[in-house]
């Protein structure tokens, strides 16, 4: 990431996490880590968002909600899956109600490892997402349809 033209806003949804990753995502927004210095703001409204941050694996109920929110986010958009649960289902992978990682429902661009994912790696993940967002934006300008 060399520079950014726009301030990307993120939307966070908890698909079925244990809260561990959730609170670390929130911790990124607070004084010690402070992603707002990159111009990133956490929003509650999908229509405002560019980056969709998901924690936790997908279960039967949340898959509909996740799909729904994803569809409401305008393109270009980037999906960041935070934590092992969001990547594969994690320790809960064998639970009867868990379908698996986020990629079972929507395409994922960045995976952030860790259980719980550390704020430093979440920030790394979001910064990686920014450059993907920029690429997608360029592709859209050329008239291609990004994912």
């Amino acid at each position: 990431m060399s520079y950014l033209k726009k301030s990307p806003w993120i939307l966070h949804y908890d698909a079925s996490s244990c809260n561990g990753c959730d609170i670390e995502v929130l911790a990124c927004l607070t004084p010690l880590y402070d992603v707002e210095r990159f111009g990133i703001i956490n929003t509650g409204n999908p229509k405002h968002a560019d980056i969709f941050v998901i924690t936790g694996g997908i279960n039967e109920q949340s898959s509909v909600v996740v799909k729904n929110i994803y569809d409401q986010i305008p393109s270009p958009k980037v999906v960041v899956a935070v934590g092992i649960c969001a990547a594969t289902g994690g320790v809960f992978r064998e639970c009867y109600n868990i379908k698996g990682g986020v990629n079972t429902t929507i395409p994922v661009d960045v995976y952030v490892p860790g259980c719980a994912a550390r704020p430093e790696s979440i920030i790394d993940g979001i910064v990686a997402a920014l450059s993907i967002l920029e690429e997608k934006r360029k592709a859209m300008k050329k008239g291609e349809t990004p994912l």
């Binding site: 908890d14 079925s16 109920q61 949340s62 009867y96 109600n97």
Partner: peptide, 23 residues
């Protein structure tokens, strides 16, 4: 409720009781 129901209590049948601490 039920949006983040995982059913983890059921995992005791698959994990031995010492490992289950992590769950």
């Amino acid at each position: 409720i039920g949006y983040i129901h995982r059913g983890l209590e059921k995992l005791v049948e698959k994990r031995d009781f010492k490992n289950y601490v992590y769950i």
